[in-house]
């Protein structure tokens, strides 16, 4: 292992790590609410809403993220309306924005699946009790269903966060220089493939460990509240 190459690579990868974390932060920050919204749509009583959400999730879970990112970045840019609409072009025209959008749309579908199972697994009695107390559907959702579902879903969601961090690497295919983008450049620049791989892998593992530890702390906190409430 050549440490001068490692020392050379680390500053580049740190810059890349910033972009990776930016994409991941948007993926979690906007993907999570979007996913929860989709999950509620998927269990709604209204047929068309449910069918649309089901279809959306099936498509985004059934196709590779790479295709999605290409459709968004290269495909949508082909439509004249998108190019001439300032807001849409801001979203699609910039490769970083397009990558973030793709990550949000993709993780939303997976998050919806996680929260759908969590919402479906809630004990019927609790919801009936809330309804019997005269709570409106919205109050039932945000006071009863959501907190319970969140606790159910959190372990699976932490896996999804790790996936978001990994999927953000696909941004490098549309010229965004995040960790993997820099790693590829460094590999073809220095030819020290193994060294670069090890350092890059260490970066990803470190980010994942930080995310998983944070989520684990949240998980523990949520389950602690259950004990103190008793």
């Amino acid at each position: 292992m050549d440490f001068s190459i490692v020392a050379y690579a680390v500053p580049f990868l740190l810059v890349g790590a910033k972009t990776t974390m930016l994409i991941a932060a948007f993926g979690v920050g906007l993907g999570l609410p979007f996913g929860i919204l989709l999950a509620t749509a998927r269990i709604s009583q209204t047929g068309p809403v449910r069918k649309c959400a089901d279809f959306y999730c099936a498509v985004f879970r059934g196709t590779p993220m790479l295709v999605q990112i290409f459709v968004i970045y290269y495909g949508l840019a082909q439509i004249g309306f998108v190019r001439h609409n300032a807001v849409l072009w801001w979203l699609i025209g910039d490769s970083l924005h397009a990558a973030i959008l793709a990550v949000i749309l993709n993780t939303g579908a997976y998050t919806a699946e996680i929260f759908r199972t969590a919402l479906l697994s809630l004990p019927r009695g609790l919801i009936e009790a809330a309804e019997a107390c005269g709570m409106s559907p919205w109050v039932v959702f945000h006071r009863i269903k959501f907190p319970l579902a969140l606790r159910q879903a959190l372990p699976s969601y932490s896996t999804e966060v790790a996936v978001i961090v990994k999927e953000s690497s696909l941004a490098s295919t549309i010229t965004v220089l995040e960790i993997t983008g820099y790693a590829k450049r460094l590999m073809s620049e220095t030819f020290a493939i193994m060294e670069i791989f090890v350092v890059t892998a260490a970066f990803y593992l470190a980010i994942n460990v930080v995310c998983l530890t944070a989520l684990h702390a949240i998980e523990r906190r949520l389950s602690f509240e259950r004990h103190s409430a008793r």
């Binding site: 790790a162 990994k166 999927e167 690497s169 696909l170 490098s172 295919t173 993997t180 790693a183 590829k184 590999m187 073809s188 030819f191 493939i193 193994m194 791989f197 890059t200 892998a201 990803y204 593992l205 994942n208």
Partner: peptide
Amino acid sequence: SIVIRGVPGLLVIYLLFFG
């Protein structure tokens, strides 16, 4: 298993191809 599952597939592919 931890390394491969924690690292993007793209990176593994670069490693194997370029390496």
